[in-house]
Structures are given as C-alpha cells and as structure tokens.
Amino acid sequence: MARYTGPTSKIARKFNDPIFGACKELKKKAYPPGQHGNKRRRKQSEYAIQLAEKQKAKYTYGVLEKQFRNLFKAAAAKPGITGENLLKFLEARLDNTVYRLGIAPTRRAARQLVSHKHITVNGEIVNIPSYTLKPGDIVGVKAKSQAMGKIQEALSGRQRASFSWLEWDTERMVGKYITQPEREEIPEQIKEQLIVELYSK
C-alpha cells in the first residue's frame, strides 16, 4: 500500500475512527464509505478483522507495508510483548514525535516538515521521517524555520496534551524524548494483538 494521499474522511469512516484528526464527515455519516456503506454487511472473517486492524495502524502512523513488516520483526525480536513493542517503535518515529510535540497539526504535516529539513535531532538536521528516536534525544525546530507561519500556527493552537514520555520547552522550541511510552499511555485505539495474530499465521 502506497502512502495514502486521498480523502482522509473516507478512511476515518472506513474504520469508524478519526485517525487523521477531527472529522466532520464521521459525525454526519456514521457508516462506511461507498455505495452500500449504510447497508447491513456480512459478518467479517477473522482474517478480515485482523487485516483491517493492520491497515488502520498503517494509515494512522503513515507507514508503508515494508516498513511496517520490518518494525514488526524488530518488535518480535525484542523482549516483552510484541504488540506493545510495535506501538512503541511507531511512537518513537521522528514524524510522530514532531506531531505529538505539537510542532505540526497532523502526522502528514509533520512528515513534510521533517522531509523539508525544518527539524533537528540533537542539534543536527534530520530529514528522515522514519528516524527512530532514543531516550534522551532532543527534537527541535531549525533556527531559520522557527518563524514559519505553519509552525507558529500549530504551536499557537497547540492542545496542551501531556505525554509523560515527552517534554516541551516553549522558549527554546525544543522537545525531549524522555523514554518509551507504556501501552496505556498511547491514546490510539489500535488492537495490536490482532496485528500480532495476523503476522503469526
């Protein structure tokens, strides 16, 4: 699956979850998209349910199939619960952290900021959205980019959601990735065990 660039409301309605942010269409049309979306559908198979959960996670974090599979392999090789490890790896991505810190309003916008070299890690420009952060890493906005309208707008309207694994310094415009989050701290409504079951077949 290539990175999705189409209407986000269709995907939100497909999974009945505003995975790209607030979605007015989801409230108006609380049924799947398509000609027969509001009709009763056949019961989904176990495989279909598991596949849908994997697709939901990929859309949410903006990860391609090959990247997702590699992350799953790394999560399975790491001690601990595979599903939780997978979510921790996804949360440690640079684009996701830029989004969580409020530097960008969406993960899609965060990927663009990273790709266009507006973001630094430990003082060095990093333009790889999938870059994996380590505890103690400092994520900042490049000095020349701090006055950018989109960044200022995002920060001024930033919802002060507190994430225990992140710190944000408003004056310096830098954030710190303190540690990996625990599963209960990650707000995304993803049933990671279904993804583990899918890859375990």
Rank of each mutant, 00 (worst) to 15 (best):
S130Y: 00
L194K: 12
L166V: 01
N96Q: 04
Q50S: 04
K29M: 10
V63C: 11
P32E: 03
L90K: 11
A161F: 14
P129H: 06
G136P: 08
R107E: 10
I195M: 04
F163R: 15
R100Q: 09
C23P: 02
N127E: 03
Q44L: 12
Q35T: 07
K58S: 06
V141G: 13
P32D: 02
G80K: 03
Q67S: 13
R69A: 11
K117A: 14
R100N: 07
I11T: 01
N85C: 09
W165T: 00
A76E: 13
K54Q: 13
P79V: 03
L87P: 08
K29H: 14
V126G: 09
K39Q: 14
Y47A: 02
P79A: 08
I19H: 00
T97Y: 02
I11N: 01
T82C: 06
S9D: 10
E153N: 15
T120M: 04
D137M: 01
S200N: 14
I138R: 07
P181E: 08
E153H: 08
N70I: 06
G83Y: 02
A30E: 10
P33L: 05
N70W: 07
L94F: 08
L166Y: 09
P33H: 07
G157E: 05
S164Y: 12
F15E: 05
M148G: 13
T179M: 11
E171V: 09
T8N: 13
M1L: 09
H116F: 05
H118G: 07
I151F: 15
R3H: 13
R108Y: 05
G149R: 15
K176Y: 08
F72C: 03
V114E: 04
L71Y: 15
M1V: 13
A57C: 14
L86F: 04
Y131F: 15
Q146H: 06
W168F: 13
A76H: 11
I195E: 02
F163M: 10
T179F: 07
Y31W: 13
P79D: 09
W168M: 02
K150N: 12
D17F: 08
Q112R: 10
L133C: 13
A30T: 04
S164E: 15
D95G: 08
M148Y: 14
K56F: 04
L133R: 09
S115F: 09
A143L: 09
L198Y: 15
P32H: 07
R108M: 05
S156F: 07
S9C: 12
E184A: 12
C23D: 15
S9A: 14
G123Q: 05
A74V: 00
T97W: 00
I81F: 05
E188I: 01
R13V: 00
V139R: 10
T170Y: 01
E91T: 10
I49K: 13
W165Y: 01
K144V: 12
V141M: 08
L71I: 04
Q180N: 09
Q55T: 02
F15Q: 04
P18G: 05
G157S: 03
P135N: 05
